[in-house]
Write a protein that binds this DNA or RNA. Sequence first.
DNA 1: ACCCAAATCAGTAATGATTACTATTTTATT
DNA 2: AATAAAATAGTAATCATTACTGATTTGGGT
Lengths: 127, 127
Amino acid sequence: MKKYSRQREAILKVLCSTDTHPTANQVYDRVRETIPNISLGTVYRNLAALSAAGKVLSVSVGDGYERFDGNNSPHLHLHCKLCGKITDLPLETDYFAETAQSRGFTPDSSVYIVSGVCGECNTKEKN
Amino acid sequence: MKKYSRQREAILKVLCSTDTHPTANQVYDRVRETIPNISLGTVYRNLAALSAAGKVLSVSVGDGYERFDGNNSPHLHLHCKLCGKITDLPLETDYFAETAQSRGFTPDSSVYIVSGVCGECNTKEKN
DNA sequence: ACCCAAATCAGTAATGATTACTATTTTATT
DNA sequence: AATAAAATAGTAATCATTACTGATTTGGGT
């Protein structure tokens, strides 16, 4: 993160303009619309850098892919095991991080996931 | 999970008798003390089955390994990015799951992770 | 107890997401 | 414009996890 690159900016832009928690490959596809010959390795490298810099969140719901999230205000992830969708639920404050801090821990990022069945899939199931 | 197997029971026992959030390979090593010729594939298959059955939690802190947790009362994971340790912080109630439920979502498991620097590493850093 | 079908297993091979490598290009500073 | 550090494209390698196969184990019915 010492020098500017339009590749990194494009990647960040993709993540900040969606709430779909894309995988590295999905980010790759989106960025290629702007920079057709960007390399997948570049996407991975920058996702790792952005994540380490705290500009982006890395979320794993256990489906074999790492997912990325440009939303940096505290929120809860609702992960539907049927349709795979991840929806965000904003939180007033990051209470858990505050609790951690009061215990001598220095927090720098939080990931909260509740897995189950979403409302939409719930109604479908009944039929 | 239709038939009993001592391999699965041994795997569950390992997970219920530790709070170190072991990887599949670490579980494999521990179980081999009891069942020396158990196969790594068997460990993976049963971890997936136990996780799907809700008897075990699957936790991913983004270090390239899936980790497993036999603790099934609600708790927060404090993940230290320096030493890699994951410590548990018990929660009175699973408030987020309850919130999700009140929004029409049917929760069945929750994973909460706060990443940062643990108290121990904090004091080491100062020196 | 024995039989049988379904479930599970051990062992090994295959998969595929992610990382590493290298020669080239870009960035920012002087 | 010259330079050095940083980043990139493209490709090869890694390795955690999954899939496959033939043998073994489990549990229900007789």
